[in-house]
């Protein structure tokens, strides 16, 4: 009798939990799960000329992704861009977080405020900001020219460098805050102990700090990798015309060429890429650390 009562109570609790979870699950399942399945199916549909798609079953879009040089090139560009930008972001973010951690507290709030800026500004506003900085009539050219450092007006607009500057700007705050939270968990006396034992600062960095922050580095890298892989606005607006990323092609196939199956197949590549990075990060992570990715 008592056990029965307990069971009903347990069941009622589970029902309440399910009811509470319902709105979140509806959003995720209907507007993320369903579209993902729909896209996966769409990527096998046929695409005759002049039609968005025709139901069918073909591997031709995936075959195109692996054989057409435009698509293989875009996949390669995307991975290259993501690796290089994430690496630079992590290095800069690490140095930034390390300095903020070492600085006296009165600096801390100010620097954290500065680091918050890119996070709070829309990506489009960031793009536009750099868009006014790099070209021939931009601030950079004007500043260098009036300082007498260059004779002619220069333009760094539509170069890979400009694309990197924009990409790193957007991902830097995520890296910074992830790494700062890891640094804050480290006992500062470790550095003092290391110095007392005669280690020069760089040795302390290599032997003490890097092993302690390994998890944070991994999470920060995979975070910015995932982000950079999926973005297309920044590289396509600041980079050269030939800088085609997967995200850019998705947008072009969907809005420009109206080839839905191919756009879906390209999206599946991105989804698989994100999943692969997440699984890889998890497997590289030390067992004890429970940092969610």
């Amino acid at each position: 009798m008592g056990g029965n009562l307990l069971m009903t109570a347990q069941r009622r609790k589970q029902r309440t939990a399910l009811l509470l979870l319902l709105p979140a699950l509806v959003i995720v399942l209907i507007f993320f799960g369903l579209p993902t399945i729909f896209m996966a199916r769409m990527s096998f549909n046929l695409h005759p000329d002049q039609r968005l798609f025709v139901p069918g079953f073909t591997f031709e879009h995936y075959a195109a992704l692996l054989s057409n040089p435009v698509f293989t090139g875009a996949i390669w560009t995307t991975v290259k861009l993501a690796v290089m930008a994430s690496f630079a972001t992590v290095v800069i973010g690490y140095a930034f977080a390390l300095i903020v951690w070492l600085k006296p507290p009165r600096w801390r709030l100010l620097l954290i405020g500065v680091a918050l800026c890119p996070l709070l500004i829309s990506e489009i506003a960031i793009i536009f900001g750099w868009w006014m900085f790099f070209p021939k009539n931009g601030l950079l050219s004007y500043a260098l020219h009036s300082l007498g450092l260059v004779n002619d007006k220069i333009s760094l607009m539509y170069t890979e460098f400009a694309a990197f500057v924009g990409l790193i700007y957007v991902t830097l705050p995520y890296c910074f805050f992830i790494l700062l939270s890891i640094f804050d968990g480290i006992d500062r006396r470790m550095i003092e102990a290391s110095a007392d034992l005669g280690a020069p600062p760089l040795t302390t960095l290599r032997e003490v700090l890097l092993p302690l922050t390994w998890t944070g580095l991994l999470v920060a890298f995979s975070q910015s990798f995932i982000w950079t892989m999926g973005t297309y606005a920044t590289p396509s607006a600041l980079g050269p015309d030939t800088l085609w990323t997967v995200g850019y092609l998705i947008q072009e196939q969907m809005l420009g060429k109206h080839n839905w199956p191919l756009a879906a197949a390209l999206s599946m590549v991105l989804v698989l890429g994100v999943a692969a990075v997440m699984v890889l990060t998890r497997s590289l992570m030390p067992k004890r650390a429970s940092y969610h990715v």
Binding site: P35, M39, W227, M229, G230, T231, G247, A263
Partner: peptide
């Protein structure tokens, strides 16, 4: 990525 969610 936003482009995947939006497209789906």
């Amino acid at each position: 990525p936003g482009v995947v969610l939006g497209l789906g």
